[in-house]
Amino acid sequence: MIGSGIKRGTAELAVLSVLQDGPLHGYELARRIEQQTNGALRFTLAALYPMLYRMEQQRWIRGTWETSANGRRRRCYRLTPAGKKKLSPLQREWAELFRALQRLTKAAHA
């Protein structure tokens, strides 16, 4: 079973990585993550918003209300400078972890 720390870490990495390309509102953010990971990562509303609010408190992202072309008001999230700073070490850590796991599984199969 994947621990909550790892789950949280991957979820935060996913959100920060997707927001790197530009601001998105919650639903679009969840859809983009699902698409870009071919459905491997899926966020329900219950999982997404507490995390977004926590990341906002940590000042990694910032949410602002915007009105779309069809007149709908949506809260758009964008990456803050602190979030950008957080992203690169997070990406490195996860890349290292996956490389280590790959080495481990290769060694187990050898």
Binding site: A46, P50, Y53, R54
Partner: peptide
Amino acid sequence: FQVTDWRDLQRRIFDAKKKGH
């Protein structure tokens, strides 16, 4: 169905919004 337990969601939103604050 995205939310199975609204009370739990309520608590987690509260924690996320207020803890740091």
